[in-house]
Design a protein around this nucleic acid. Sequence first.
DNA 1: GAGACGATAAACT
DNA 2: GTTTATCGTCTCT
Length: 199
Amino acid sequence: MIENLKKLDEEFFLKNTLNVAMGLLGKIIVKKDGEKILYARIKEVEGYIGYMDKACHCYPDKMTERTKVMYEKGGTSYVYLIYGMYSCFNIVTEKKGLGCAVLIRGGEPLKESQDDISLNRFNKSYNQLNSYEKKNLLNGPGKLCKGLNITREDNNKPLFSYDFFIASDDSAINNFYIDKRINIDYAKEAKDFYWRYFY
DNA sequence: GAGACGATAAACT
DNA sequence: GTTTATCGTCTCT
């Protein structure tokens, strides 16, 4: 197990979406996977702000069976299927009813989880991976979900339970990059919002 | 290391 | 019936 991990509380996720997104950089996803606990540090995120964001599933204030989860209060998980094959893990932000979330686009395993996550991704232990596979362990939303075994069964869960939550160690991120979001060419002016953060 | 390409199923209208 | 928007594999450098 890991010492000195502090579970993030609800207050952290109720703040402004972009502040939550930046604040999540360097934080640690803790996910129970069978008998194991997996740990991955968040390296890349994107903010989605429903009411003003054409790239968001909720725009324009579109509550459907799928998107109703995004209208839950901050700290709820939103996991959806894309390409019929992969999952994307988001964390709802701000107060209930706004339809905002942060998409977790990439991460890296903590040392303790390198083997477990490598097995989930490539069915090999970490030291059997080539350098390309090591680099690609969790550097994408679909890869991150596969590596951490985050599935649609994890959709609509409060991220404060013992088996799925976000934690902080005492490390701080001093510098990170800001850029436009990825793969949302359809989103008109929203595709140029600088709401992607990574380091 | 970078670019092209095809796979696929659920939500939505 | 239409929309959605990542990954792995392959090719070439």
